[in-house]
């Protein structure tokens, strides 16, 4: 089932010491994401300026997969326009649902593509997508402002 592949040193490292885990000084939107059955809980902070995600960070507790996925997502979306972030979001969801399997296409997800094999762990998919769902809701909140 490729467990070792999923728990690569990268993920373990990301979850132990994620560089994106801190508060932002002036976030424009802060949103909590929870997996009620697990106790994974993240708080995503974004600073959106002129339709661009100028900065992003998170705080919270959770398993290695949810923490690493959040950190990798932030690496990806920082500096991107909202539209670009949404496109990457669709790509990530497509990867986790195994609708998109072409590695060349997934290359754009950079490190987050390492989470491809989480699709083999149905019980853990919700951990990998928590941050992306939270981003989806946060961008919606930002849009409705």
């Amino acid at each position: 089932m490729g467990l070792e592949a999923i728990y690569t040193e990268l993920i373990a490292e990301q979850s132990r010491n994620p560089e994106n885990k801190h508060h932002l000084t002036a976030p424009t939107v802060v949103l909590k994401g929870r997996n009620p059955s697990c106790g994974d809980e993240i708080s995503l902070e974004l600073r959106v300026e002129n339709d661009r995600i100028a900065d992003a960070a998170f705080t919270g507790v959770g398993c290695a997969i949810s923490q690493a996925s959040t950190s990798m997502m932030i690496d990806l979306i920082k500096g991107k326009t909202v539209a670009e972030a949404k496109r990457l979001m669709a790509l990530f969801f497509g990867m986790i649902k195994r609708e998109i399997t072409d590695d060349a296409v997934l290359e754009e997800l950079d490190e987050a593509a390492a989470l491809k094999n989480v699709a083999n762990l149905p019980a853990r998919v919700k951990c990998a997508v928590l941050s992306w769902h939270t981003l989806e809701d946060a961008l919606q909140t930002e849009k409705e402002k």
């Binding site: 089932m1 467990l3 728990y7 979850s15 132990r16 059955s37 697990c38 106790g39 994974d40 507790v61 959770g62 398993c63 290695a64 997969i65 923490q67 762990l121 019980a123 853990r124 951990c127």
Partner: peptide, 30 residues
Amino acid sequence: KDVHPHDVATILDAEGVAVRAGHHCAQPLM
């Protein structure tokens, strides 16, 4: 130590061992 319960349960699962991980429907106790 230093491992989230869900990661523990997933690794045990790979060894054929079924345990529960999470808040056990007892969040105030947690």
